[in-house]
């Protein structure tokens, strides 16, 4: 199973490390020909406006949209969640997303870095043990459309993890806490998609 990690900017090495630990072959994706080789893709944390700009400048944005439409499993964390959202609130001037998730995501929803935090979250789909989640200048899902399903919410009810078919997105960063269950969950989607085509 070959899983790509979008490597334009951000903490792509942390995702690659988790995926390798779980037995996947990892390809760092910066070009369309690299994207064409993968069975699934992770879009890491980072600065979504920078990823968007580089994806467009190097001809990767349209192939990414086509791959999502064709059913490629994709998991996005933080900036990656923003990239997968159909609607981005508070983006920079001219910011575009790849889309695919029927959600509206608000960038920097908590404010400046001093409002970044870690906390435990219940994520029923991953089992009983809570997920220790790190939110770094994180986005939240303002609106979950009818196609998408919320997987986790903060105590105040704001949605921070969503799923829709083969797409998965989290506001937080399992890749930097040693939490592997989201990646395992995603790899099972990739395996099923490979089987079904």
């Amino acid at each position: 199973m070959t899983v790509g990690v979008l490597a334009l900017q951000g903490d792509f090495r942390e995702h690659a490390q988790v995926l390798r630990t779980l037995g996947a072959d990892v390809v760092l994706v910066r070009r369309p020909e690299e994207l064409a080789r993968v069975d699934g893709l992770v879009i890491p944390g980072g600065e979504s406006s920078v990823m968007d700009k580089l994806a467009r400048a190097f001809g990767l944005a349209d192939p990414l949209r086509a791959a999502v439409r064709a059913g490629l499993p994709v998991y996005g964390t933080c900036a990656g969640l923003i990239m997968l959202a159909d609607t981005v609130v508070d983006g920079i001037r001219g910011q575009e997303s790849i889309g695919g998730l029927d959600i509206s995501v608000r960038r920097n929803a908590f404010g400046s870095q001093t409002q970044s935090f870690e906390t435990d979250l219940d994520v029923p789909v991953l089992g009983e043990a809570p997920v220790h989640a790190v939110f770094i200048r994180a986005p939240v899902v303002d609106t979950v459309g009818p196609q998408a399903t919320a997987l986790a919410r903060l105590a105040d009810g704001r949605c921070v993890a969503v799923e829709q078919g083969r797409l998965l997105g989290t506001s937080f960063h399992p890749e930097i806490t040693g939490e592997h269950r989201f990646h395992e969950y995603f790899l099972s989607t990739v395996a099923a998609a490979r089987f079904l085509g």
């Binding site: 951000g10 903490d11 980072g46 600065e47 920078v50 790190v134 939110f135 200048r137 930097i176």
Partner: peptide
């Protein structure tokens, strides 16, 4: 926390 502080720098990597 350290994780939150160091984490923001992680997100700036490659930038």
């Amino acid at each position: 926390s350290s994780r939150v502080k160091r984490g923001l720098a992680d997100m700036m990597k490659g930038g």
